[in-house]
């Protein structure tokens, strides 16, 4: 079986495989991307890592607020929920915490009535309003507000 022909065939096979790999590599070179935002602005209004890695643009959150960053305002619960669906959905994602009544999205005191920005911020470190009264317990109940 191990004659020249077989060797030759195997060679051709491997060659095409290599071509395939190289070829598919070429087609994957990134097309020129539109310039998003100036580095200066990005530095001034950094995004949280979980949003940055999705390459969200300013206008994905500051929707309908024009093109001038100076005029941008906070986006409120509605802004967050346009992507994060609903407070019910967010409460469900942390359902396991309900067992001990510490779900920040389904508070033992306020249910789902809290505003996102009582805890979450985008361009600065987030806080956690539960800390106001439970300064010791919160860190064992949940992680730092992302």
């Amino acid at each position: 079986m191990c004659n020249k022909k077989t060797l030759y065939l195997v060679g051709v096979f491997l060659f095409f495989n290599a071509m395939y790999l190289i070829g598919s590599e070429v087609s994957k070179t990134p097309p020129a991307q539109e310039v998003a935002v100036s580095a200066e602005l990005q530095e001034k209004f950094p995004l949280k890592n979980h949003h940055a890695k999705l390459s969200l643009k300013c206008a994905d959150c500051h929707e309908g607020q024009g093109d001038e960053p100076e005029n941008f305002q906070m986006i409120g619960d509605e802004g967050c929920l346009s992507c994060h669906k609903s407070k019910q959905y967010l409460a469900d994602r942390l359902k396991f915490m309900d067992v001990l009544h510490v779900n920040p999205h389904n508070s033992i005191h306020d249910g789902q009535r809290l505003y996102c920005d009582e805890c979450h911020f985008e361009h600065q470190k987030s806080e956690n309003m539960c800390l106001n009264c439970h300064s010791n317990d919160v860190k064992i109940w949940m992680k730092d507000t992302p």
């Binding site: 994957k28 990134p30 991307q33 999705l54 390459s55 994602r93 359902k95 396991f96």
Partner: peptide, 29 residues
């Protein structure tokens, strides 16, 4: 559309990057 525009770039993301717990409701719990 944002997802499509990132395809084949070094910033490529997947459906699951945004759609968490799809296929598995309440996975984290």
């Amino acid at each position: 559309k944002h997802y499509v525009s990132l395809q084949d770039t070094d910033k490529q993301i997947g459906c699951a990057s945004c759609h968490v717990e799809i296929g598995h409701k309440g996975l984290r719990s």
